[in-house]
Design a protein around this nucleic acid. Structure first.
Lengths: 158, 158
DNA sequence: TTTATAAAAAGAATATTATTCTTTTTAATA
DNA sequence: TATTAAAAAGAATAATATTCTTTTTATAAA
């Protein structure tokens, strides 16, 4: 089943990615339509799975989580059963918001959000390095972030 | 101004991070309260900036973007003015959803979402490597992703 | 302790919006 | 051109957000 998204659908997805709290009325007005087709289209996009969920994005810094860190990890003797255990442990750490198995110079790439350097170090020492079979660990600490979004530019995929 | 978030506030943030389309009534019921204090608290969290925005999260695969790639970049002769130009260019690429200046073995770390390997290669060849002063470029291609979220576990920060 | 005060919650009323249903229009096809 | 199905519009209803007033709870001063 290939895409069956027309221009209005992609406009809706673009709008809702920016602000999912817009009223159907306001969206309808922007697109020069009435509320009912807008409403029905959005419901269809939800039902068909184009829209996964609606979430609130928090201001991490305001909450006290000021540091983003990426960690590249290689494992030493990785049996399949150990990999699964490793991933499960990693995913359970609240500091870890992303965990990707990757090809390239690492086996895994993690993204973490933590309070500060101290919290980062605590994570490394008292959580990460306690995991067995850990090989190389390389950290990239975000000094600044110029772009960080979930918004997908749909102009290229339409 | 340190946090002045009580238990109810953090519960609200936790709930809205998972699903921002919940009605105040349903949330109020879950927390054993009535709608008006819930409503007012949420508005306060918005106004004070704890909640940055509400967005729809799309299913990238469904839209045809099946590949996530991280790219570590070093620059060669980086004057300040060039860095700014470089970042601006990078941020304008629709494939790039994150761009971090990092300390460690790279100067920048990018996160990309693209259609497939071919689109990735096209990006490298016809966009990235056209930028001047590019030093080392190292790609980490996500083979699988076991965790990828914006949801912040507030139990540790409260 | 009591009493005064402010903040939070509850309750009630209203305004908006979401949602459903019916009718009309548009577009596609025979 | 006529026929049919899909999309949009319009109208009506149900649900929710939002506002306002009253009550309760917590806090601190007497």
């Amino acid at each position: 089943m290939p895409h069956t998204l027309d221009k209005i659908d992609t406009q809706l997805l673009t709008i809702l990615q920016k602000n999912s709290n817009r009223t159907t009325k306001s969206i309808a007005k922007e697109l020069g339509m009435t509320t009912s087709p807008i409403f029905e289209r959005i419901k269809k996009l939800e039902k068909e799975g184009y829209i996964e969920k609606y979430v609130a994005i928090l201001n991490n810094k305001k909450i006290g989580l000021k540091l983003t860190v990426f960690i590249g990890i290689t494992l030493q003797g990785h049996t399949r059963s150990y990999l699964e255990k490793f991933v499960k442990e990693i995913n359970n750490f609240p500091e870890v918001i992303e965990c990707h198995r990757v090809s390239g110079n690492f086996d895994y790439l993690l993204k973490l959000v933590v309070e500060d350097i101290e919290a980062y170090e605590t994570f490394i020492i008292s959580k990460l390095t306690l995991l067995p079979y850990l090989g190389n660990v390389q950290s990239l600490i975000a000094l600044s972030t110029s772009k960080e979004t979930n918004e997908i530019d749909l102009s290229r995929v339409l």
